[in-house]
Design a protein around this nucleic acid. Structure first.
Lengths: 197, 197
DNA sequence: GTCTATACGATGATAGAC
DNA sequence: GTCTATCATCGTATAGAC
């Protein structure tokens, strides 16, 4: 098997296991077994267990941010930009449920320097939402409110779907994204002043 | 030191460590060191590491449910009941931030039977919110909507404060509870129909 | 109730053959 | 690229003295 293939296989198996059992509870042996190789062979592809986790977290956050920027490109209406941002955020979190769950829960498995790098990526993503809220308020599209708290509330609400969503269930990804999109836009326009304290 | 005291000390140390490093990443040795005893002495108070986790999860969920029921006792107006439920939920999650974080993230550390028992406690709590939403809709106080999805959204939103709240910061616990209370009541009354898909 | 000592398996990681 | 063999360490938990 060519290296790139096995490297991707290992990553896929790790995502499944980290999602199901958690990073610390998953052993290199289990990842090797799921990949059909011996545990020592893992180290040919990844230099450590933490490097494997870091790879998962980094690509997930990079893909997430790239997806958001792509969705917003060429759109200038602020309400429409927020709708697209929320919709894309929900969509990505449901389509890549396992990776985003890991990204939201397993940062403690990283060393200080690695964690710093990942937190910076996450903050960059959150800043896009905070800018959208700020611009919307300045423009009068949204009511006044605490930008940081609003952004946390929005992102948490949208991410939450990932914990109960089951593919093939009653609602499609687009249904759920639409529900959140509507709810949040209403909240930002109508009740945002309540969030300023 | 009398047994009850040390048992509580161990539990307190475990809560700190499980919150900071996670259940699997925390060793019995570390808990012992933090408690000022040898690791073997832990087993005089708790029969296993999992029993310690179970104890934390059970008391947290039992206290949470008792707090909610106490808050709702003697109040019959449905909007007021929902306000009190949200306010109490936020308050408890901010006052006992570490325990509720553990309760929300470390259930995977339990065996199947123990997890079943804890999930049942959690479901009992969530059912109180779902009943409130259902009754509010039937009474015409809230707009129509999907009761389960609404309850998940409400609980997630309120719990989220626990991940960024820092005691002594800009906002008090009551401030944050009031913000959420207002935001959710507005959502239930005004935009709830958006959540029915 | 707490101690010292220890059993015993599993872990992440490396060395070197093929 | 993958294998076998192995290392050092640490994990939970127990036995028995005090």
């Amino acid at each position: 098997m060519p290296m790139a293939r096995m490297k991707a296989t290992i990553k896929g198996v790790a995502i499944e296991l980290f999602f199901k059992k958690g990073y610390y509870a998953t052993s290199i042996s289990e990842i090797a077994q799921g990949s059909g190789i011996q545990k020592s062979s893992i180290y040919y592809h990844y230099e450590s267990k933490e490097a494997l986790l870091l790879n998962i977290l980094r690509t997930t956050l990079e893909d997430l941010t790239a997806f958001l920027k792509k969705n917003l490109a060429g759109v200038f209406d602020l309400e429409e930009r927020m709708r697209l941002a929320v919709h894309g955020h929900v969509q990505f979190h449901l389509e890549r449920q396992k990776e985003t769950f890991i990204a939201n829960s397993e940062m403690r498995g990283l060393s200080r320097e690695n964690r710093r790098a990942i937190v910076e990526l996450r903050d960059e993503y959150e800043r896009i939402f905070q800018d959208l809220i700020r611009e919307g308020i300045e423009d009068g599209v949204f009511e006044r409110g605490d930008v940081k708290i609003l952004s946390y509330a929005i992102l948490t609400l949208c991410t939450s779907g990932a914990s109960w969503f089951r593919p093939g269930g009653r609602l499609t990804i687009d249904d759920i994204a639409a529900i959140h999109e509507h709810f949040i836009i209403e909240g930002l326009k109508g009740s945002a002043d309540a969030l300023s304290g």
